[in-house]
Design a binder for these strands. Structure first.
Length: 577
RNA sequence: GUCCCCGUAGCUCAGCUGGAUAGAGCAUCGGAUUCCUAAUCCGAAGGUCGCAGGUUCGAAUCCUGCCGGGGACGCCA
């Protein structure tokens, strides 16, 4: 749409003898197709010229526009409504999309800019659970969107791999070797090492209630770890690597990957420097035995050091932000973390600003709403009735199993291998899309029944629509039909689709700018829905080979666009299902 | 109590950097399949855009207050 809109703005600049290209004029659809095909409100110009938008639109409508793809220009109140010559408009649009090829949708908006997206960030020695899904998928989609918008992206997994909890785990490993010895069979060789670790941890915590000595032992082990004791270190590394191996299994199913995986432990050395810096800037204050930094009047001070002198995760976040900026000089750095931590991030960003780091303004908390689970008919945060977390891979397996049933029922003759691949993709598609459909700030109720309904505004709906494209193209190829230049796309629904297609790059830009994947989700739903309407009214493949060719070009453009959009959302576009 | 987020159809949401008659999906009811996959499509019904002020030529959209829901608020991460 940019090319067309650019031409219109250029003509207006010429007519009015003033540059209107920076006024933020936006080409939109008129509310009623009878008014025209494209519309431009003259309000921004009116403001700039201190004149009436109605007068301006009337004046402009009378000009000789001299654009070959414009049929007529009419002023309706303050709006300038354009009717396009469909043959040329369609032809240009199809050509544009075809020329761009696989990079269709990409823009240069972020050219020369670098952005870090931190997401997922699970704790090691634990499983990925459903509540990790939001950060993981939103973050990956954002990373994809930024890349598409021309940014250099560093996707970042900030592992929780440090803290006194690991002291307990190491102490448990040591103390309970008679019950479960992690050296035999070796942790790394086990089926589910993380569950074994959890079991031991729970046992240790329970016994520690009656036996305070265990707490001392945990402290000792954490001290050993901090001091670099070789045994502690080796075991901790093992825990880390078995955890990562498990994470990777889930990540690869979801299409998630990171440029950097760096644990909190990495920033330990920087902690002392941060505190020194706070001291030398006279920011650190004593309060109730602890040490704090006041940030702003309307938010409580940030706690830096506990009574006993130990630091907290906030301090670690200060250190990691500083270290991160030294590693990668970013223009934006997003933390894809739930909204419950918004105060924490305001404090972290505020303290960094107080320390004089100008780049603190480039830090953003890309917050998202909580995920609730259904517990006995009530929506609750985090855990199920038994206090258990719901494991992510179990949810994914459940989704895939259900998808397999449905695929099989719709398509009983499907080969075994295809069934496996397709149900995996459809199951993932359903789960992922349900998480990415609404604006990220909204809380979501994780309702597996709804996610797996596959009707209406769902991932499988989009995948099914893509299958229709593939199916049409397949059939056309069988009949030896070839694509045409799109000149014959003159139906109302075709124009509608062409206009929708042209908005794709702008949507990518907007989604990246706002760090809002749902912008893309909503766009794809519109696109698919408009196509399905078209599909029910018009036949692509017909006796008219020329017209079929034009329509095939449209189908190809639709397939390119929907496929591209789905991929950015980590949903697999399918050719069959 | 203070701060943050949210409040649009029965439910889930879009529209929110102000602009033409507020749109989808689900659920309900009715309809469409000799034809490219009906996981689809068409129609009906469903709205004090939480409430009250304000700004504006114009407010679902911006501002203030209130109400309702969620979250956070110092020694966990």
């Amino acid at each position: 749409m940019r090319q067309f809109s650019h031409q219109l703005v250029q003509r207006i600049s010429h007519f009015l003898d003033m540059d209107v290209s920076d006024l933020g004029m936006e080409v939109v659809d008129p509310p009623n197709p009878k008014l025209g095909d494209l519309s431009l409100g003259c309000f921004p110009i009116a403001k700039a010229m201190k004149s009436s938008p109605v007068e301006i639109s009337q004046k402009l409508a009378q000009q000789d526009w001299q654009l070959e793809w414009i049929e007529k220009v009419v002023a309706t109140g303050p709006y300038l409504n354009f009717t396009v010559k469909r043959e040329l408009f369609s032809q240009y649009a199809i050509q544009e999309i075809k020329d761009q090829g696989t990079s269709w949708g990409d823009t240069q908006t972020g050219h020369g800019k670098r952005v870090i997206v931190e997401y997922s960030s699970p704790n090691i020695a634990k499983h990925l659970a459903v509540h990790h899904l939001r950060s993981t998928m939103l973050g990956q989609a954002m990373a994809n969107l930024f890349r598409s918008a021309g940014y250099e992206v560093v996707s970042w997994n900030h592992l929780g791999d440090w803290g006194t909890g690991f002291g307990k785990l190491l102490a448990a490993w040591d103390k309970f070797s008679d019950i479960d010895n992690f050296d035999s069979p070796k942790l790394a060789d086990r089926e589910d090492p993380v569950s074994d670790l959890n079991a031991l941890y729970v046992r240790y915590s329970n016994e520690a209630k009656d036996n305070p000595e265990l707490d001392d032992s945990a402290r000792d082990w954490f001290k050993k770890l901090e001091d670099g004791d070789s045994l502690a270190r080796e075991r901790w590394e093992t825990i880390r690597s078995v955890s990562m191996e498990l994470f990777e299994k889930v990540y690869s199913r979801l299409g998630v990957r990171f440029d950097k995986v760096i644990g909190e432990s990495h920033y330990e050395d920087g902690m002392k420097d941060v505190i020194d810096l706070l001291v030398s800037n006279h920011l650190l204050e004593e309060s109730e035995g602890a040490e704090v930094v006041s940030v702003a009047e309307d938010i409580p001070p940030m706690l830096i050091r506990k009574k006993d002198g130990a630091t907290l995760y906030g301090t670690r976040d200060l250190a990691s932000a500083i270290a991160r900026h030294e590693m990668v000089e970013f223009d934006r750095c997003l933390y894809v973390v739930d909204a419950g931590q918004s105060l924490h991030f305001r404090q972290v960003f505020g303290v960094l600003k107080k320390l004089g780091f100008e780049w603190a303004d480039h830090l953003e908390h890309a917050e998202f709403g909580v995920m609730r689970l259904n517990v006995d008919g009530h929506w609750k945060k985090g855990k199920t009735r038994g206090g258990q977390v719901v494991l992510l891979h179990e949810v994914l397996d459940g989704a895939v199993e259900l998808a397999a049933n449905i695929v099989l029922s719709k398509n009983p003759d499907i080969p075994e291998e295809d069934l496996k691949e397709i149900s995996e993709a459809v199951g993932m598609g359903a789960v992922i899309f349900s998480d990415m459909k609404a604006a990220r700030r909204k809380d979501v109720n994780f309702d597996l029944d709804k996610i797996l309904s596959f009707d209406g505004e769902t991932g499988p709906y989009l995948q099914y629509t893509h299958v229709r494209f593939a199916s049409i193209l397949r059939k056309a190829a069988d009949q030896g039909l070839s694509e045409n230049d799109g000149k014959g796309l003159v139906e109302d629904e075709e124009l509608q689709l062409i206009k929708r297609l042209l908005r794709y790059p702008g949507i990518i830009d907007k989604a990246a700018k706002q760090a809002e994947p749902s912008q893309l989700s909503q766009y794809l739903l519109d696109l698919a829905s408009e196509f399905n309407t078209y599909y029910s009214k018009h036949r692509v493949i017909s006796d008219n080979a020329e017209l079929s060719g034009h329509r095939l070009a449209l189908i190809q453009a639709l397939k390119t666009t929907l496929g591209s959009g789905l991929s950015k959302l980590c949903i697999k576009p399918l050719d069959r299902m």
